[in-house]
Design a protein around this nucleic acid. Structure first.
Lengths: 240, 240
DNA sequence: GCATTTCTCTAGCGGTCGCTACAAAAAAGA
DNA sequence: TCTTTTTTGTAGCGACCGCTAGAGAAATGC
């Protein structure tokens, strides 16, 4: 499972320039090194104070891997500062609190690792082909030794004592199933799939497969084993 | 997912009577109110000291529900003492530390809620029928409003900072898949299933379905939705 | 009665949690 | 140089974590 991507990194710091009564850096999410006023179109004006001593993106990637491996709760701020190799105040200044760092990680995960699902849905010519590709790519991705096994969106916030975090990942999972369902219904409308298909159940089946595969990957299944599983699972599709 | 039951409640206090140098109550797991010496066959000898002020079994059930709902880590000892309605020293005297309480909870879960899988494998005449029944019963159990959704063994120790706990549930999940695989291979041996079936992949597919269904139940799927999913999933089986 | 055994209650241990105050450090603008 | 702005390191806050010492309470055996 994964994304609903689109990476709109707006967030709270949207529009709030003039009134200077606001303390707290408000978890600055500016992606590059732009100056604060931002109304100035000055292209190369350096930011005012002491420059950051670390690269924000690589630090974010380290946090991503830590959250992916251990989950939201089990990854402490102290763990994060260690793997990101920065002090706690730097973390809070650059990313806000732990939760907003996690939210940014989830967004980044959607872009970097979780986009295969949306890509398959968008690029393949039938729902059948899209789901087949999606599952095969999941088999590869979830067992890629270059990063933790399984899917962050599935595993990073189960049994989480912060209900909002758990809920946000749940919404991503359910949105993905809804996207699969829409793709199936589109095929039904064009006649590429029979009209008597239960689109909701078929989409939910696909979602359950992906989530089950993610769990299997965490439990030690290899890419080949997951691929064998996918070939079995695809047998349910009406012949096209 | 679930059990590998058999409920052998032996544990560390197996054989170690005579030398009295042992302090620490050793997390007494005696299920009923038997006297300590135990060599005496006296049937109705009451235990020596102050009797327990709570019922051990109902307290265990309360702990089970709490762990089921929130998982191992997210359920604090303070949460446990509140829902079990006992003080912390009583909890430690009766169940040992948090981890051994959790282990006992998992065993109890296997007996009370997770035995449907083994029962289906043992009682149905074919692997096909056993898996069909297993999945249908999972659809009912995982959405039963009388207790938390999904499967404790699947969800209670993901992203757990105590690796041993995570591993013990992982072993239960994999053992269940191994049991399904054995049942499939038995059918292949008798000719009830074709000889060219990939038993391992088919068993893993079933395991992934169960785990995915558990996740779906947690994410809000109804019993009817899971049952529709099961009917789709069963279409993969070779016609018998 | 009295000693013994066991459980319960209060209180609090050391440790980690997420998070922040504060001052020194490093840059730009004057 | 001097002020301003921002980041960095140190150090520690209050809250909660799992767990337990110690005294009192409630039972049995004598």
């Amino acid at each position: 499972m994964h994304s609903m991507v689109s990476s709109k990194a707006s967030e709270q710091t949207g529009t709030q320039g003039p009134p200077a009564t606001d303390r707290r850096p408000a978890a600055e999410s500016r992606p590059a090194a732009k100056p604060r006023p931002a109304a100035k179109p000055g292209p190369a004006t350096k930011p005012r104070g002491r420059p950051r001593s670390f690269d924000r993106e690589t630090a974010l990637e380290k946090a991503l891997l830590a959250f992916w491996e251990h989950g939201y709760e089990a990854t402490s701020v102290s763990d994060l500062t260690r793997v990101m190799d920065i002090g706690a105040p730097s973390l809070y200044a650059a990313f806000g609190d732990k939760r907003s760092l996690f939210e940014e990680v989830v967004r980044e995960y959607g872009v970097r690792y979780g986009s295969f699902s949306d890509r398959a849905l968008a690029e393949e010519s039938t729902a059948h082909a899209a789901v087949a590709r999606m599952l095969r790519e999941a088999a590869a991705e979830y067992t890629d030794p270059a990063h933790p096994y399984g899917c962050l969106v599935v595993h990073a916030a189960t049994n989480c004592s912060t209900p909002e975090v758990e809920e946000s990942l749940r919404e991503r999972r359910n949105a993905n199933i809804a996207a699969i369902r829409s793709r199936i219904e589109a095929d039904m409308a064009t006649g590429a799939l029979p009209a008597d298909v239960d689109a909701a159940a078929l989409a939910r089946h696909t979602g359950a497969m992906i989530q089950g595969m993610s769990q299997q990957a965490r439990d030690g299944a290899s890419q080949e084993e997951l691929e064998a599983l996918v070939e079995i699972a695809m047998a349910i599709w009406p012949r096209t």
